[in-house]
Computed example of a mutant assay.
Amino acid sequence: MIGSSRWGLAALTWAIIAVILILPPVLVMTEALRNGAGAPIASLADPDALSAIRLTLVMTALSVLINTIFGVLAAWVISKYRFPLRGFLVALIELPISVSPVVAGLVWLLLFGTQGWWGEALDRMNIHIAFAAPGILLATLFVTFPYVTRTIAPLMEQQGRDAEEAAMLLGASFFQILWRVTLPEARWALLSGVLLTTARAMGEFGAVSVVSGHIPGMTETMPLHIETLYNGYQTVAAFSMAALLALMAMATVGLRSLLEARARASLQTKDTAP
């Protein structure tokens, strides 16, 4: 009875995974290749498509770089120190996970849009944030900020401060301690957080859609370009771009899984060492 229940539960789990996780990317790939491999290649070579790919890669790279730096610093603060309103700071860091990205996009428009608080003054100085690349970067930074911090903060807290205080007594600076003492122990968690941030940045739609203005060839990222193509009844081109985005995301997630497996193996080796 127990054995049959176990196999039934396993079959149900695989059925759910197949429908929810496996079927969508398979259908995307199938639709992209419906007219052969030539059509997807031609659609991805379109200037607007190349612009969308380039903008996505640039925004992702900048977001990952900035959020890695500030994410590590934020993780250090909340894991190494106890101070008033620490819980409030943690809640603020986690806010982008719970707030709709569309809300974030609207906030950036309120601040930097043409009719926003600072939009008119910025426009006089010929500084464009909303409906331009800086606005897309701000929106992406907001939605991806928590991942590095929340990935490495628990590990930093578990490390304690003994080794860092010893390094400080030996005259090490803050950045020397961070680079040579703290981060080597947290490198796998940091890489995992970086890859999570990368995957999230590449696929962001809501906040970017609001703040970008959907200008083809200028402010359309890959997710926005997919919507434009699909709404224009360019089905093969839309699914081709979607397939490329899915492959990029799956490669990122696959690399993260590989790194996590390597981290577990390294930890087990360390635990079993005499």
Score class of each variant (00 low, 15 high):
Leu85Ser: 13
Trp118Gly: 02
Ile226Arg: 04
Ala32Val: 02
Arg200Asn: 09
Pro84Gln: 10
Val72Pro: 06
Leu89Trp: 03
Gln176Phe: 03
Phe112Arg: 01
Ala42His: 10
Met168His: 14
Pro96Tyr: 11
Phe174Lys: 15
Ala139Pro: 02
His225Gly: 01
Ile93Val: 14
Ala265Glu: 15
Pro96His: 08
Gly171Phe: 08
Gly71Val: 00
Arg34Glu: 10
Ser192Leu: 02
Arg34Pro: 03
Arg124Asn: 10
Arg82Met: 00
Glu185Asp: 11
Leu190Cys: 04
Val102Asp: 05
Leu178Thr: 12
Thr13Trp: 12
Leu55Asn: 05
Trp118Met: 15
Trp108Phe: 15
Leu95Asp: 03
Thr13Tyr: 13
Arg161Met: 11
Ser257Cys: 09
Ser257Ile: 14
Gly105Asp: 08
Trp76Thr: 04
Gly171Cys: 10
Gly217Ile: 02
Arg161Val: 11
Ala238Pro: 06
Leu224Gln: 05
Arg187Gly: 02
Ala139Lys: 05
Asn35Met: 08
Arg6Ser: 12
Leu138Glu: 01
Ala104Asp: 02
Trp108Glu: 01
Trp14Pro: 03
Met202Trp: 06
Pro134Ser: 03
Val26Pro: 07
Glu31Asp: 11
Leu57Ser: 08
Arg264Leu: 13
Trp188Thr: 10
Thr114Lys: 14
Ala249Pro: 04
Pro47Ile: 09
Thr197Ser: 14
Val181His: 06
Ile41Gly: 01
Ser51Cys: 04
Pro101Asp: 04
Ala207Gln: 07
Thr219Gly: 02
Trp117Leu: 15
Ala45Met: 13
Thr149Asp: 04
Asp162Ser: 13
Ile22Asp: 04
Leu245Ser: 10
Leu95Lys: 10
Thr30Val: 11
Ala32Pro: 07
Pro216His: 10
Asn126Leu: 12
Ala11Ile: 13
Gly71Asp: 00
